[in-house]
Simulated scan of single mutants.
Amino acid sequence: MKIRKKQLCLLFGIILILVLSSCGSDASSSSNKSSTGGGGTTGAKTHLSIMVGGLSKQIYLPNMLTKQLGYFDQEGLDVTLIDEASGQSSEDSVLAGQVDAGSGSYNHTIELQAAGKQMECVVQLDIAPGEAEMVSAKEAGSIKSVKDLKGKNLGVTELGSGTQTLTIALLHNVGIAQSEAHFLPVGAGDTFIAAMQQGRIDAGMTTEPTISRLLSSGVGKVLTDLRTPQSTQTALNGSYPFICLFMKNDYVNSHKDVTQKLVNAYVKTLKWIHTHSAEEIADKMPTDYYAGNKTLYVTALKSQLAIFSPDGNMPSDGPQSVYNIEKETNQAVQGKQIDLKGTFTNEFTSKAN
Rank of each mutant, 00 (worst) to 15 (best):
S25A: 11
S217Y: 08
L16R: 00
A140T: 07
G160W: 09
A203R: 00
G175D: 06
Y60C: 14
L65N: 09
A235E: 06
A44H: 13
D288M: 00
V19Y: 11
S89K: 10
Q233N: 13
V135Q: 00
T109K: 00
I14P: 10
Y106A: 03
G97C: 12
L214T: 00
V19Q: 08
G97R: 13
S216K: 15
N313W: 01
E139W: 02
V298N: 09
P315L: 08
I15T: 14
D92A: 13
S303M: 02
K284Y: 01
E84D: 14
K221Y: 03
Q7G: 14
M205C: 10
F308Y: 15
D78S: 12
P185Q: 06
K152F: 09
T343E: 12
G70E: 09
E208P: 07
S316P: 01
S145Y: 00
S216H: 12
N264P: 05
T275L: 06
E158Q: 15
T191R: 01
A278N: 05
A140R: 08
K261H: 14
D250A: 14
V298I: 15
L223P: 01
S254L: 07
I82R: 02
Y106C: 07
V156N: 00
A115L: 14
Q118Y: 11
A137I: 01
A332C: 02
E326K: 12
I59C: 04
L223N: 00
D283T: 06
G151K: 06
V186F: 12
P209L: 13
T167Q: 05
K294N: 08
E326I: 03
T232D: 02
M196H: 01
V258R: 00
T259P: 11
Q197K: 15
G38D: 04
A181L: 08
T80I: 07
N237D: 11
K138L: 10
Q178R: 12
A278L: 09
D283C: 03
V122Q: 00
T269P: 11
L301Y: 03
E180A: 10
Q164W: 01
G141D: 15
T109I: 04
G187K: 09
G104P: 03
S86K: 05
L149R: 00
E347F: 07
D92S: 13
M64D: 14
F192C: 03
G37A: 06
M1W: 05
D73N: 13
Q334W: 05
R4W: 06
D92H: 14
S161T: 09
V99P: 11
D190F: 00
G37H: 10
S309K: 06
W272F: 15
L184C: 03
S29V: 10
L214S: 01
L18N: 02
D202P: 05
